[in-house]
Amino acid sequence: MPQVEMTVNGKAVSAKAKGNTLLSEFLREGLGMTGTHVGCDTGQCGVCVVHVDGLPVKSCNMFAAEAEGAEVTTIEGMANEDGTLGVIQQAFQDNHGLQCGFCTPGMVMSAASLLAENPKPTEAEIRAHLSGNLCRCTGYHNIIKSILAASGQDAQGAV
């Protein structure tokens, strides 16, 4: 098996991967980074979202080899350097934006990609942006609130 190299959360990493090894599989099995989850087999649920060269990607829909040399960011790389929760993570905790936690890595990574391109999104823009991220626990209510809070906005209309 060829060795695949990339940068994950700022660290150079290398692991063996077959041609058909998915990026999600590479992270979880190759690197032992199990923060990225897998929730479906059709690229629909979004729990596996990571950033590849700054763009959100469903890591179950990309081969590890395609990320050769790329800068990958996962949920494990979203905390502050001192280990405290990053702004988005903290907003999710403050607003009870997660319950079982399984979709959470994908939600946080999708939220980060939204806020990077649109620092003050409207409620409708957030909902539209999350169309590729399923959550079964929250009814999305507190996820939307969390992302509004992370962008420094009040959740108007949310009780």
Binding site: M33, T34, G35, T36, H37, T74, I75, E76, M78, A79, L85, Q89, F92, Q93, L98, G101, F102, T104, P105, V108
Partner: peptide, 11 residues
């Protein structure tokens, strides 16, 4: 939440 938000859950 801290472990779930940092990828440290143990599913």
């Amino acid at each position: 939440d801290v472990r779930f938000l940092t990828g440290k859950g143990n599913y």
